[in-house]
Simulated scan of single mutants.
Amino acid sequence: MRTVKSYTDQELLDCLKSGDQQAFAEIYNRYWKVMYFHALKMLGDEDDAKDLAQELFATLWTKGTNLPFNSNLSGYLYITARNKIINLIQQKKVRRDYLSALSAFAEEAGNGTVEQIDEKELLLIVEKEIQNLPVKMRQVFELSRKQFLSHKEIATQLGISDKTVKKQIGYAIRMIKLKLDVLTRITIILFFLK
Results as ranks from 00 to 15, higher is better:
M1R: 10
T3S: 08
V4Y: 06
V4R: 02
Y7W: 12
D14L: 08
S18A: 14
Q22G: 13
A23K: 06
E26M: 11
E26K: 07
I27Q: 03
R30A: 03
W32F: 15
K33A: 11
Y36P: 10
M42V: 03
L43E: 03
G44P: 03
D48A: 14
L52S: 01
L52Q: 03
E55K: 15
L56P: 04
T59Q: 12
T62P: 00
T65I: 04
S71E: 05
L88H: 15
K93C: 02
V94N: 13
R96S: 12
D97W: 09
D97H: 10
L99C: 11
A104W: 07
A106T: 10
A106G: 13
E107G: 09
I117E: 00
V126R: 10
E127M: 06
K128N: 14
K128R: 15
K128C: 08
K128L: 13
I130V: 15
Q131W: 02
N132P: 01
L133H: 01
P134H: 04
V135N: 05
V135G: 01
R138H: 00
F141V: 00
E142K: 11
E142Y: 02
L149Q: 12
H151G: 14
I154D: 05
G159N: 03
S161R: 08
D162L: 01
K166N: 12
G170A: 10
R174D: 10
M175Y: 05
I176S: 01
K177H: 07
K179I: 02
D181F: 08
T184C: 08
L190V: 06
F191Y: 14
